[in-house]
Every structure is written in structure tokens, then in C-alpha cells.
């Protein structure tokens, strides 16, 4: 695995907007996970082409936050999802 992997949602995993509750969920076979705004923003950037650094850079700019802090949080968040096989790194 490279130090700047490209995350992607595996087959069968998708983001879904629950309009009734005005929230986003990550749907995987037989499971659903509730996302907050930041988690949603991160996963909306996961397109299978953008590297972790590119995603972090865009989010840091959007939220006006220090890039190292954003990169650390994004990495920790996605690593956790990779550990649960909800996201893949390529």
C-alpha cells in the first residue's frame, strides 16, 4: 500500500441520503452506518480517483482548517473504514 492511497467504495457499498431525517448513511450489505456532516463530506470526496492527500487538501480549503489536522482526521476515519472493509485503498 502506498503512503498516499486512493480510497474507493467497494462494490455494494454506497452513500444514501435519508431525506426524512436529513442525514446521510453508508449502506453496505445488511448494514447501515449513520454519518455526521464531516463523515459525509469525506465520503462524498471518495471517487476512486482522488488520493487521500488530494481529498484532505480540498476539505481543508472548504472548511478553512489546517491541512495537517484534516489529513490526520481523514486518514484515521478512512483507515477505520478500511479495517471494517467498508472502504478499499488502491
Amino acid at each position: 500500500m502506498t503512503t498516499d492511497p486512493v480510497p474507493l467504495l467497494p462494490r455494494g457499498t454506497r452513500l444514501h441520503q435519508d431525506r426524512v431525517r436529513d442525514t446521510w448513511v453508508l449502506l453496505v450489505p445488511e448494514r447501515a452506518l449513520l454519518l455526521d456532516e464531516i463523515g459525509t463530506a469525506i465520503l462524498q470526496e471518495v471517487d476512486g480517483r482522488s488520493s487521500l492527500a488530494a481529498i484532505s487538501c480540498r476539505l481543508a480549503e472548504r472548511y478553512g482548517a489546517p491541512e495537517p489536522d484534516v489529513a490526520s482526521d481523514v486518514r484515521e476515519f478512512l483507515d477505520g473504514l478500511v479495517g471494517q472493509r467498508l472502504v478499499d485503498y488502491q
Binding site: 454519518l35 463523515g39 482548517a65
Partner: peptide, 16 residues
């Protein structure tokens, strides 16, 4: 909204 650590929660065994 300011940046903060993202949160993801399993939905308890709770509209498509």
C-alpha cells in the same frame, strides 16, 4: 460549520 473529527455510527437493528 467548522472542521471536527468525523463520526460514523452503526445504526441499531431502526427509508430507502
Amino acid at each position: 460549520m467548522a472542521w471536527k473529527k468525523p463520526i460514523i455510527k452503526n445504526i441499531a437493528c431502526m427509508n430507502m
